[in-house]
Design a protein around this nucleic acid. Structure first.
Length: 923
DNA sequence: AGTGTTGCAACAT
DNA sequence: GCCTAATGTTGCAACACT
């Protein structure tokens, strides 16, 4: 046996054996079940693979223990001080006022199948295939059959098991019904998966206090499943006494739907428990399916609570520190979302099983685990979690993968690869996504998984483009094992690093490209959604030919006609289908687009007017050949507790020359009056349907409105502004003025300070070393300041020389932002016409630039635009690909990626949903 | 040489 | 005989820049 391989049967059992950490699985004959599982699985390649993983994990544990043995008392003391300090900080920031609810449908897929096929109700059944089960009903769980178990093993455990194939369309439809109920309690609820969601019902509860009883009264329609469940309880209960008492018994807060109650009414109270009981009642009435819920002051606790009284039950942790700590004390760490098999084992090796033990060993944990990880542990031990439900997390990647019987033939492998690329391309195009990284995932017959990624210069979304990269990665792997065949059991293709609106210059259909009739270089038949968004968001993109003498200076007014050198980068152009685009677009996309613009830290915005009428001038310059990015951003970050109309001005000068105009309008719900910003004339158009808005744009494009709107003088704009403001409430008007004032009073220093508030995107390389604490740990881990400390520092860009130069350049072009303007009158020079503007009002100035820019765009358009040089970057990608075999290539220091904002609602659980952080260990 | 950035692999649900 | 599929986050090391 090799060193560190102490894995015996007991150890491997933790991997392959029954995991009864699931509702309905208590009191089973685990030994008997495990014996069957082990007999079935032993000797298989899967088993061998699990053994290998187990050995690796054991080695990790041993390494950790060896390090632990070397830790000195002095180190522990020092660490203890740090832990206590952070704990005190965290304690101070504890928030108990939100009422967070986590709802989880009971055995969802199985319940849906049982509902639709009554014969299944009293049989042990599972949903999935012989290869893998997704879930099982409570009958099947009595036999040890559970989710993530292969069907063939389940059949050994329960020969009568009925396996029903998955039917996602059906589950999606039911999920939609459930979500409609959720939306009544929190319109911003966060779906975690088809059967799970997190809600913040704080506001609902406030309103509910004033509701008359009639609004809390529901008529009971008898739900058959309840009767059946009761029947089931009797039946199953008769079979075994070990059935969990909560399994089929209504818990105190559970659904009031009882047999014989048909036609009666049920009145729900105003407490959180009553509101959640009502929600579950309504779900059951609507779908005849039951749900369980957890109510707590944060998401982490709510998630744990929802499991507490499963099925068909609920549990609440009162919003008091003591209640939280009492709940946490004896809670096994494995119950916490984010602590998996590996972490559980690592902690168990340290004698940590419960959350209170976790708290007791924090000093040691801080020495053994990375900063992120131990911070996460500390939060758990204090019962802290996220109190803010963020629905805006966007999709980061998209992939498709397939498992199959052994495939060793290279031709077949390439053909499958192409097939996967085809499917993925379709999915990407459906969601309008393009990404720069293509990853190939391979699993060989020994269950060894390997992923190989390749980053392209150009974002891709077509089958050919993806396949071009994927097939090379595959070839590299085939060559690697040659002359032996590559024996695969799984292949997957993923595309990630989605480009943001700002980033997609080389491919983005500018309004010019969009209007130009030309063939689509990307061979993508359909315009992507992002493209639609970019048009809808009125994003006009021009790219200037690289021209050093006009770079940067163009914004200072030193160059007389800087924009004359701009041309469109519209290699990917579309048919003039604007009508179709607009018709297809949903108002939400406009909103999303605005948010994208707002959160991008690589844009310069003179001033967004307000949240409902947001017009911003964005200037970024990039010089692709220059390695250092000259970017400086000034951000007025939205305070989380304030309203959503963040006053914000970002300035940046980086090195590709790019000007884009973006304007966005916050929209209302579909059939309400909506306000759109015309991408041509920038007028605010109020309309109930997009068609009339489209018509308006058509008119603008045809020049009719263009002619009508010849004046660019401030008066007209003021009138328009006033007109608009008149339609908003006074508060918003006030807000605009406030923002202008805020901008004007911002001195350079204050801007830099505010810049610190810019949220840090996650970086594996911390920015600031904590010398005070790093001394004794640095050899093993890089130690850095805690997040809270980081925020008090000036961001690295702000401190860099190039950053300050860039800032000044920016500042000189938009003096409004850089000097204490309440003391001086700014001179605003239009970067398009180079004329000094006789106004200090940024709104007016923006309007002027909008118009100038627009004139330029239309002029360019009329003069027929040369095709973009996108092919250059494609050639580069090909060259890069050809040299990529077997070894990863590092890219040069290109500008950091801006926050990726693509549309998506994550339907997966992520640790981050419950905390901020992950659990990767150092060992 | 020190530090920031990027890509990959591992680990999580 | 047979052990899924999709997606997110982080640590670490290699690379690039100053």
């Amino acid at each position: 046996m090799e060193p560190g391989c102490s894995t015996g049967q007991d150890s491997i059992l933790s991997r392959v054996a029954l995991n009864d950490n699931k509702a309905g699985m208590q009191g089973l004959d685990k030994d008997k079940i495990n014996k069957i599982i082990l007999e079935t699985t032993k000797g298989s390649r899967f088993y061998e693979s699990e053994l290998k993983k187990e050995r690796q994990l054991n080695q990790r544990v041993e390494k950790m223990m060896r390090y632990k043995a070397k830790v000195t008392e002095q180190q522990i003391q020092k660490a203890q001080a740090e832990v206590e300090k952070l704990a005190a900080d965290l304690e101070r920031s504890r928030k108990l006022e939100r009422v967070i609810v986590h709802v989880d449908m009971d055995a969802f897929y199985a319940a849906v199948e049982m509902r639709d096929c009554p014969e299944l109700k009293n049989k042990p059944m599972a949903v999935g295939s012989m290869s893998m089960l997704s879930t099982s009903n409570y009958h099947a769980r009595r036999y040890g059959v559970r989710a993530a178990m292969p069907g063939f093993i389940a059949k050994k455990l329960c020969p009568d098991l009925v396996i029903v194939p998955l039917n996602f369309d059906k589950y999606r439809a039911v999920s939609e019904q459930v979500r409609e109920v959720f939306a009544d309690y929190d319109p911003h609820f966060l779906p975690m998966s088809l059967d799970e969601a997190c809600l913040d019902i704080t506001e609902h509860l406030e309103q509910r206090q004033h509701w008359p009883e009639s609004m809390r009264t529901y008529q009971i329609c008898e739900v058959k499943t309840t009767a059946d469940v009761n029947e089931l309880q009797t039946t199953v209960g008769a079979e075994t006494d070990t059935l969990s008492p909560v399994l089929f018994e209504d818990s105190p807060g559970s659904s009031p739907t009882v047999p014989g109650a048909d036609g009666k009414v049920e009145v729900f109270g105003t407490t959180p428990e009553e509101a959640v009981r009502e929600m579950r009642f309504r779900i059951e009435q609507r779908t005849t399916l039951t749900a369980s819920a957890g109510i707590a002051p944060n998401m982490m606790l709510a998630k744990v609570c929802s499991d507490k009284n499963k099925p068909n039950g609920q549990y609440r942790i009162l919003p008091e520190r003591k209640a939280v700590m009492d709940f946490i004390q004896e809670l096994p760490v494995r119950k916490i979302s984010g602590i998996g098999k590996v972490t559980e084992k690592m902690l168990a090796a340290l004698g940590i099983i419960t959350c209170s033990q976790l708290g007791q060993q924090m000093a040691m944990l801080s020495l053994l685990f990375s900063e992120t990880t131990w911070h996460h542990f500390l939060q758990i031990s204090l019962g802290l979690g996220s109190t803010h439900i963020d629905r805006d997390s966007e999709r980061k990647s998209m992939s498709t993968e397939r498992t199959f019987a052994e495939m060793s033939n290279a031709d077949e492998q390439y053909s499958l690869c192409r097939e996967l690329c085809h499917d993925l391309a379709k999915d990407l195009q459906r969601e309008g996504l393009k990404g720069k990284t293509v990853t190939l995932k391979l699993k060989n017959v020994n269950f060894e998984v390997k992923t190989k990624a390749f980053s392209l210069q150009c974002a891709v979304c077509t089958e050919e483009e993806i396949f071009a990269a994927a097939k090379d990665l595959l070839k590299a792997e085939i060559d690697n094992v040659s002359p032996l065949p590559l024996r695969l059991r799984l292949m997957g293709v993923r595309v990630s690093s989605f480009i943001s609106v700002d980033d997609k210059q080389p491919q983005q259909k500018s309004i010019v490209g969009f209007l130009k009739i030309a063939s689509d270089c990307s061979s993508s038949a359909q315009p992507s959604k992002s493209e639609m968004v970019s048009v809808l968001g009125s994003s006009v993109s021009l790219t200037r030919e690289q021209c050093p003498e006009t770079r940067s200076a163009s914004f200072t007014g030193e160059t007389s006609k800087p924009f004359s050198k701009w041309r469109t980068e519209s290699g990917c152009t579309a048919e003039p289908q604007q009508q179709t685009f607009f018709q297809k677009a949903h108002a939400k996309r406009l909103q999303k687009q605005y948010e994208q613009e707002e959160t991008s830290d690589k844009i310069f915005k003179c001033l967004p007017a307000d949240s409902t009428n947001n017009s911003a001038f964005i200037v970024t310059t990039h010089k692709p050949t220059v390695k250092t990015e000259e970017t400086q951003t000034c951000t007025w970050k939205r305070h989380p507790d304030t309203d959503d109309t963040a006053a914000k001005a970002d300035s940046s000068l980086s090195t590709t020359n790019k000007v884009s105009y973006a304007s966005q309008t916050k929209t209302q719900s579909a059939n309400m009056l909506q306000c759109f910003t015309c991408p041509v004339c920038f007028n605010q158009i109020e309309t109930k349907n997009l068609s009339s808005f489209n018509q308006h744009i058509d008119e603008c494009l045809s020049g009719e409105l263009d002619n009508k709107r010849t004046s660019m003088d401030g008066c007209q704009d003021v009138c328009q502004e006033e007109k608009l403001l008149g339609k908003q409430d006074e508060a918003k008007k006030e807000h605009i003025h406030h923002k202008v004032t805020d901008l004007n009073s911002g001195s350079r220093t204050s801007i830099l300070k505010r810049n610190n508030e810019r949220p840090y995107t996650s970086s594996s390389t911390p920015l600031f070393e904590n010398s005070a604490h790093s001394d004794f740990r640095t050899p093993f881990f890089k130690r850095f300041k805690s997040t809270s400390e980081k925020s008090s520092f000036v961001p690295h860009e702000a401190m860099s020389d190039s950053g300050s130069v860039s800032f000044q350049q920016t500042a000189s072009s938009v003096e409004v932002i850089s000097e204490p303007l309440h003391k001086m009158v700014p001179i605003l020079t239009c970067p398009v016409c180079s004329q000094a503007q006789d106004t200090d009002d940024l709104i007016l100035f923006n309007h002027h630039v909008d118009m100038c820019l627009n004139q330029e765009v239309l002029l360019e358009f009329r003069e027929a635009v040369p095709p973009m040089a996108q092919s250059d970057s494609k050639v580069k990608d090909l060259e890069k690909l050809s040299t990529a075999r077997g070894k990863s290539k590092r890219r040069g220091s290109s500008p950091p990626p801006p926050p990726k904002k693509t549309k998506a609602i994550s339907t997966r659980h992520t640790i981050d949903k419950f905390f901020k952080g992950n659990c990767n260990q150092k060992f």
